[in-house]
Design a protein around this nucleic acid. Sequence first.
DNA 1: ATGAAAGCGCTAACAG
DNA 2: CTGTTAGCGCTTTCAT
Lengths: 337, 337
Amino acid sequence: MNIKEIAGRAGVSVATVSRVLNHPEHVAEKTREHVLSLIEEMGYKPNWFARGLNSNRTYTIGLMIPNLLNPAYVEMAKGVEEIASKRGYTTLLCVTVGDPQKERKHVQTLMDRRVDGMLLVSSALEDDDIFRIKERGISIVLVGENKGNSKEPTVRIDCGEAAANAARHLLSCGYREIAMVYGKSPETENQNKICGFQRALQEASVAIPEEYLVCEKNTIEGGAAAARKLFELSSPPRAIFTSSDLLALGVMEAARETGRSIPKDLALVGFDNIRIAELMEPRLSTVAKPLRRMGIYGTKLLFNVMENIDDASKKREIVLKSKLKIRKSCGGGEKTP
Amino acid sequence: MNIKEIAGRAGVSVATVSRVLNHPEHVAEKTREHVLSLIEEMGYKPNWFARGLNSNRTYTIGLMIPNLLNPAYVEMAKGVEEIASKRGYTTLLCVTVGDPQKERKHVQTLMDRRVDGMLLVSSALEDDDIFRIKERGISIVLVGENKGNSKEPTVRIDCGEAAANAARHLLSCGYREIAMVYGKSPETENQNKICGFQRALQEASVAIPEEYLVCEKNTIEGGAAAARKLFELSSPPRAIFTSSDLLALGVMEAARETGRSIPKDLALVGFDNIRIAELMEPRLSTVAKPLRRMGIYGTKLLFNVMENIDDASKKREIVLKSKLKIRKSCGGGEKTP
DNA sequence: ATGAAAGCGCTAACAG
DNA sequence: CTGTTAGCGCTTTCAT
């Protein structure tokens, strides 16, 4: 079933059928209706490849996220899907597991498939990787804080300040022995969180022993491993701030294993505000990241970039607000729900 | 940068370059090396569309799953990705949210993009949908129990028996007022679970009041809503079995809200054994589904099907074993970790 | 408003 | 072993 067959049955040329599909306004109403009804009737679908071969528009965007087992990214992805599908675009989802090499491979796949645009979430790509993508005429939007410092259009929150706020709250609860557990990835974001954390403690003249900064894989298991290390210290921390909720869950698991009660023996604050944070016992205090909205704004921004090609120089950056959710786990009194 | 340019520089015809790429064994070693190095050097990538246009092989498989916020499906997806990428295949992930209409749309997209095969997880598609896919020459493997009864190659567990076992355990713990909360989707799987559940209670001559079977969206919120309904009954259940862990999490939330203690006031058994089940307080008893392995086996089966086209008549079905994990939430003594 | 025809970049007969 | 060439199905000038 191809365009030729439709053209034959409709008694018009293939060009006309093609026009009906691509520039319907340039076809006589009567012809158009006729062709359209035939297309419908015969269930004709234009061949994707033939189309892509000479139009180079695929109505597809690529979405690169670090990890599907982190609900935070899934929330973002949902926001993206929502907007993309509303515009008739398909989303190609790639999972990088924080591995730049794998990320490059995925980028290649997406470029091969000629996505019209790409959304990079907390990417580990370097500036020249980004450059190579743009060179191919593919629009890019960054979501979260990425590795390079190429000033592509971005949607993010201020991770550093958010982390500082979390730390300040812990300080205000009276804790002084505060450790931070952070994930290997996403690298840049976590570095910013560390800076914020350190800044807050410095402001309060609280020292951070080197062993209080521990890095593990950004997973539940990583969090548990980090916590175990901290627990074994000669002077273990009284509070822990983690760069993600996933890590915090791991800390909770390790605490339970070792008979520590949260928040009595150990205060805890996470980052992201994934749904399960509220389900834990005690409920996990955390920094609420507007995940879905980051996806939505990012996608809208991407469409803008894709539309005004000449306008690509306008370097847009959207910084959304995060909010500390104070619940049970940090021991400071449950204030926000 | 196209094949012609490479051919020109290499001083060979386009056919030779194409052969180097597709049937390297039919090219003289020297020529091949030379062309290959040029390809490498110039960073040439064959045009995806031109290629797809006449080869109809895309080295891509489609994976259709109901929900990314259910870690159970993500685990499966990881298994799939693992095998597919090992074979050099790309996986296109589609999320159907249990909506058959959306699922059909995704199937269409996947067919447009000429995936070589499709993996349908707990699909809501009917037999003739499946037929239409196969008609297009696309291989299919079903993972989980799907709607139609077309006997496509399948990887699944015996949901009915697993549910019966869970119920039997609850009975053996002495509970008689046992309710079941099940999700709207995946429909067939949940129907089977209900049957198993009913069978077990019948075997023990325990009656199930109609109000003890409650259906909600297969989400945490759905579970909470269902639990609230059950709690309001004049004679509320003493134990609840849910068709998914997600639902069980919701039940736990509702129990906490209403001051019910698990397992003292309410016993609970879930289904899937997602990672968080172990993190809950109390730890959630549940039916362990071999999620990752289902993805792996499904994908391997798909590759088999894709390879022996004539062999498609061999109706293969792999039934994996599930296992009841007895933890704290069902109150029967923590036996398995 | 419509049709004829020239590609898009690649693969696979077919011939040599 | 290699080159020539005819498509794959569609879009898009360029005429008419």
